[in-house]
């Protein structure tokens, strides 16, 4: 070293531990990486212990059965990234799906009904957003109120399963399309619902990483106060994310309803929590500011795969599912604590 001027050295230790340094600075990636590792480990374990995990029809079913959860998780990712929460999505699904089926059975054009389901979802999100942003209600409370409201409205419409007519064109959303015709039933199948989920994921990724709206979401999660002082449109953005979450609840509702062919007022109880779990397992910090849509997708798939493995195992009582979910969630929340503590140092 022969610097003569006394300019301060910026932390550029040019040693072999560049990777280590990078990881230290991007420690918020750790939970997401952990989720991917767990997901791969679950696949490997399932494949070795029970077999038949890495095959086309299992993969197809995993996607088809979890498309709605993936969509909800994308919405929740936006919300949780700002440090908020949306508890209303499960109930919004119940209300919109019951309403949609009833309307279709009364002869509404299915696509008009679909549009209405989505608009209603968006409206619930908008009300939550307005309560939170302009009336200073805690996100937890505002969306809890919306949850009770939506659940109540669903029950007022009907308390019995409402079946969709078997020939309803709406069911096309859940129609199977063979991509690869494998041996026996081992086909790679895709439904329009899965395609929509994929589009939602890609769009979510695009919005979060390539638009100012998305960057403002991260900024709000980092520090809402700073975001305001930086002149970012905080109010508009917060309103937008709850509308996005509500809209996606409407979309998820349509896909789930088409897959099941019926709707009921008790549908979707606890789904908001599944979606939150998927988001958190996927690495989004509950305090906001760090996380990825793709992480949430992995989180949703971890939960879905867990159900598959428990079914395959046969020895684990299905009731244990929630205990295992809880356990995984706990581990990931602790991991987040660790990450935050490390950052604060």
């Amino acid at each position: 070293m022969s610097t003569t001027t006394a300019t301060p050295e910026l932390k550029t230790e040019k040693s072999g531990n560049d990777v280590f340094r990078w990881l230290k600075l991007h420690i918020e990636l750790l939970p997401t990486i952990a989720a991917v590792v767990i997901f791969v480990a679950m696949i490997a374990y399932g494949q070795i212990a029970y077999g038949g995990i890495l095959q086309a029809n299992t993969v197809s079913n995993l996607l088809i059965n979890n498309a709605h959860l993936i969509i909800l998780a994308v919405g929740l990712t936006f919300v949780i990234l700002t440090g908020g929460i949306d508890l209303s999505v499960g109930a919004v699904i119940a209300f919109t799906s019951v309403l949609g089926v009833i309307l279709m059975n009364q002869g509404w054009n299915p696509w008009l009904a679909l549009g209405l389901m989505i608009v209603i979802g968006a409206a619930f999100g908008a009300v939550s957003g307005i309560l939170i942003q302009y009336f200073n209600v805690q996100p937890f409370i505002a969306t809890l109120a919306m949850m009770f409201l939506a659940r109540g409205l669903a029950s007022m419409l009907s308390t019995v399963p409402e079946r969709l007519a078997d020939d309803s064109p709406f069911l096309v959303l859940a129609e199977n399309f063979k991509i690869i015709d494998g041996p026996k039933v081992n086909d790679l199948i895709i439904t329009p619902g899965v395609i929509i989920a994929i589009i939602v994921v890609v769009a979510g990724f695009f919005v979060l990483h390539r638009t100012r709206l998305g960057r403002t979401v991260y900024a709000i999660g980092g520090s809402e106060q700073s975001a305001k002082l930086m002149g970012l449109p905080v109010a508009k953005t917060k309103l937008a994310i709850y509308i996005i979450s509500g809209t996606l609840a409407g979309v998820a509702s349509a896909i789930y309803t088409a897959r099941l062919g019926s709707a009921q007022n008790i549908t979707g109880i606890g789904w908001e929590l599944d979606a939150i779990a998927a988001t958190v397992i996927g690495g989004t910090l509950l305090t906001g500011g760090a996380g990825f849509v793709l992480g949430s997708v992995v989180g949703a798939l971890v939960l879905g795969l867990m159900n598959v493995l428990i079914t395959r195992d046969g020895g684990i009582p299905p009731e244990a599912t929630t205990i295992i979910t809880g356990g995984i969630l706990l581990v990931f929340v602790l991991l987040q604590r660790g990450v935050l503590a490390k950052k604060r140092e």
């Binding site: 390539r210 638009t211 403002t216 991260y218 900024a219 999660g221 975001a227 930086m230 500011g289």
Partner: peptide, 25 residues
């Protein structure tokens, strides 16, 4: 200093005034 700690130096400098092209930022 009102910045967002979770974002990078470049993002803090440019947020809200990012260069935009055909595919977003």
């Amino acid at each position: 200093a009102s910045l967002c700690g979770n974002l990078s130096v470049a993002e803090n400098i440019m947020i809200g005034q990012e260069a935009r092209g055909r595919f977003g930022i």
